[in-house]
Simulated scan of single mutants.
Amino acid sequence: MRYSYALVPLVSAMQAMAIDPDTWYFGNSLFYLGPPSGNSAITKATYSIVPPTVPSGAKVSNTKDQVWVSVWVGASSSAGDDNTNLYQPIFNWSLDQESQGCSASVDEWCVAASTFTPSGQLGQPYVTVPNNTPVDFEIAVENEKVVQTVIMDGKVVSKESDALDSPLKYLYSSNECYTGSGNCGSLAGYYINNLTVTLSAADSKFDQVMALNGVTDDGFTSSDGGLTWHTEWVKVNSVDFDSSSAVKSDFSSS
Rank of each mutant, 00 (worst) to 15 (best):
T179E: 13
G185F: 02
T179L: 07
N194K: 12
A211S: 13
A163F: 09
N213D: 11
K159A: 10
Y172V: 11
A163S: 14
S161Q: 12
K169N: 12
L199Q: 01
N194P: 06
G185H: 02
G189V: 07
G182H: 02
G214Y: 03
Y191G: 01
S200V: 07
L199A: 01
A211F: 13
Y190D: 02
S186Y: 08
Q208Y: 08
Y170S: 02
A188V: 08
Q208F: 07
N193R: 11
L171W: 03
A163P: 01
S200H: 04
S158T: 09
G180K: 00
S181H: 12
N213P: 02
Y178F: 12
K169L: 13
L164W: 04
S161Y: 07
S166C: 08
K155M: 13
G189N: 10
N193Y: 01
T198L: 09
A202W: 11
K155N: 13
S161D: 10
S200I: 09
V215Q: 03
G214M: 04
K205I: 04
K155A: 15
V209H: 02
N193A: 09
K159M: 13
L212V: 05
S173Y: 03
L168T: 09
Y178S: 14
Y172E: 11
L212E: 15
G189I: 04
G154Q: 06
S181L: 08
L164I: 08
Q208S: 15
C184P: 03
L187A: 03
V156R: 04
D207L: 05
C184D: 02
S166T: 13
F206Q: 00
S204W: 04
V215H: 01
K159W: 06
N175D: 12
S204N: 11
S161G: 07
S204Y: 06
Y190F: 15
Y190N: 00
Q208T: 15
L212S: 12
S186C: 08
A163D: 14
S173H: 03
K169S: 07
L168A: 07
D207W: 06
Y172H: 10
N175I: 10
A211M: 12
G180V: 06
G154W: 08
D203I: 11
D153C: 06
L199W: 00
E176Y: 08
K205M: 09
G185M: 04
L212R: 12
L187P: 00
A211K: 15
T196F: 02
E176G: 09
M210P: 02
S181E: 09
D162E: 14
A202P: 13
G182Q: 01
L212D: 10
V157E: 05
L187M: 14
E176P: 02
G185E: 05
C184I: 06
A202Y: 09
G189E: 07
Y172L: 11
Y170C: 02
M210K: 05
N213I: 06
L195R: 08
G189H: 10
T196Q: 14
D203P: 03
D207G: 15
I192Y: 01
N193M: 07
Y170E: 03
T196C: 04
Y172Q: 09
Y190M: 05
G180M: 04
N175G: 06
Y170P: 01
